[in-house]
Design a protein around this nucleic acid. Structure first.
Lengths: 336, 336
DNA sequence: GACTGACACTGACTCGTGTCAGTGACTCGA
DNA sequence: TCGAGTCACTGACACGAGTCAGTGTCAGTC
């Protein structure tokens, strides 16, 4: 039987057990610089701590130091996609390796707003997917947050560091289509408004690639996640004076909708219309035809973010974001 | 310009501003019972707090009270699926409404294990998807965790309350197939080992339905997320002496693999083989043919969990889990 | 007029940790 | 032998909030 009220083991208990002062315990356990501790004492303290099963109270440490070892990642309730779930997993492992704990909070229909969250958690750093307004940033600083990183956003301004160059995804999509001989390109834009922050840079990349290749700007249509919506877009594209022959989809789920819509409209993929997705989700290869798409190296991206955030935490100031080398690769299957 | 070091506003500042003692501020702000505060004083304190922009320090409160207002949900890095992302969003909103903050931590390849997480967070309650062993539960209690809820698991024992009856999903799947006249049923089991905890109850439900209908137990095959693996399973099922005519898939993604495999093997769905999925993910309706599947009412489930956890927190003891009424509905499309 | 009790409020202690300023004991060079 | 300088360690304060035991004031009662 587990006793109802388990008394907490404190550093005083460890000190008593080891026969030293509590401060000595603290010095040993934190390896405080400029404090010389002989091996014998160190061993005694460590042994006592292990014997008693001592774990320091995060609340007390946070109170004293003014900041915790928690990194808070705020995400929106995305109606589509789980590609970023992979990134979160990599981020968690990466921060764990440097002694930080990543937790995620889903920003949403909460009545209390996100301020309540970083007040409850007092995180060392906050990662967000959309820019934070100056007021919110002030309350964050007051709550002890040292580093604010915006993972995705149009403009990398003062606080918005570490922006992933999602435009490159659109660039690679369009370049692949252009190389295959397409000269009129469509863009399948996602329907949920919460995805705007993600979709804009990708679309921007497609625009840039079209301009560079000297072809017309992409014809943008919004495509919801059902076959009818996709079929309507496809009919629009193919009915134009200068018909679209290839489409960049915002992501693989929109691309799957396009495939379903093409089937409904009797349009062959890739012969009548080429489709390229993004994210390379697990079901991309299961589509018929299998989806050509842009894969994201989540592990590399996570390494970069962890590196930048930890050095910002160490320096106490903003550091320059390291340039991501090759986060994206084009995965050629059959749809384009 | 935001000053580099923003001094924190404490309750002492509020007390000074309002011209009262700090304890009075605490009583006003917490509406402490049996403490009578006249309206004038109350007003003065509230005004001062608002004027100064006071937000209590969660770390200090947690230290004093021994527990925070955070609920920690621990999830595994699922290689498939994002159905539970919807549940998490609903849970977050639900807990927020009762003054609790839900954060999620992805348990994974971390070197430090999950113990570090609840030590950092000191949550009031922990939600997990797999049973916690008694040792871990002890460290949790010592860290101030009051309520441990296991959301999914085979056996609802002492600590494992609030178990979602996933067996009912399998039951509904099989009942739908039996009602359509199928007498030999296959089960497409997911490949990643981390999904075992989820797959077992669902499979159990299928077994129960088969037994009840008086037909043979389901023929189980593991199906990875690619067309080849699915085609191999399909050929096995159809090559049996008593061939399988309908398959329950663990979830919609496995079902999509089955559809891709059937196309590869030249098997028609639903005529040659019926397929039913589970979870009703957004792309389920985009498949060809559109997937018949079991939808989960995440909002209702979240309401139930929030209710049970908050009352457990209030009572300080385990309460009986309320019985979930109708969390699942069969969505009939074309694949079965 | 003394006593009671409610009211409105305050001071002091507590939670568990980090850290600074000391303090004896000892070594070493002059 | 004296002072300086390390070494190894300790005591006390601080972080910010919750809460208990009191304290002075005042209205009401016998």
């Amino acid at each position: 039987m587990v006793p109802k009220t388990q008394k907490r083991v404190t550093s005083s208990d460890v000190a008593r057990e080891a026969g030293v002062a509590r401060s000595t315990v603290s010095y040993v356990l934190n390896r405080t610089p400029h404090q010389t501790i002989p091996d014998g004492t160190r061993r005694r303290v460590l042994d006592a701590a292990a014997r008693l099963g001592y774990t320091p109270s995060a609340a007390a440490r946070t109170l004293k130091r003014g900041r915790s070892d928690v990194v808070l990642c705020i995400v929106k309730p995305w109606p589509l996609g789980s590609a970023s779930g992979l990134l979160l997993a990599e981020l968690t492992a990466g921060f764990d390796a440097v002694g930080l704990t990543l937790v995620t909070h889903i920003e949403g229909a909460g009545v209390r707003g996100v301020e309540a969250v970083w007040n409850e958690i007092a995180p060392a750093a906050v990662l967000t997917y959309s820019p934070v307004d100056p007021d919110a940033e002030r309350t964050m600083r007051a709550a002890g947050v040292q580093c604010v990183a915006v993972l995705f956003s149009g403009e990398p301004d003062g606080s918005a560091r570490f922006v992933r160059p999602d435009a490159r995804i659109g660039l690679l999509q369009a370049q692949h289509l252009v190389a295959a001989g397409h000269a009129r390109i469509g863009y399948a834009y996602p329907e949920p408004p919460t995805l705007r922050d993600f979709a804009e840079p990708r679309l921007e990349g497609v625009r840039a690639a079209c301009a560079e290749a000297g072809i017309a700007a992409p014809e943008v249509r919004t495509v919801a996640l059902d076959a009818e919506s996709a079929a309507a877009a496809i009919e629009h594209w193919r009915g134009m004076d200068d018909p679209v022959t290839a489409v960049c989809a915002y992501n693989d789920e929109v691309a799957q909708a396009l495939i379903a819509g093409a089937r409904l409209a009797g349009v062959g993929i890739p012969n009548d219309l080429a489709v390229i997705g993004a994210d390379d989700i697990p079901t991309a290869r299961l589509a018929s035809p299998p989806l050509t798409t842009i894969a994201i190296d989540h592990a590399a991206e996570a390494r970069r973010i962890v590196h930048d955030v930890t050095s910002a935490l160490r320096e106490g100031v903003a550091v320059e974001a390291t340039d991501p080398a090759d986060l994206f690769t084009t995965v050629v299957r059959e749809s384009a």
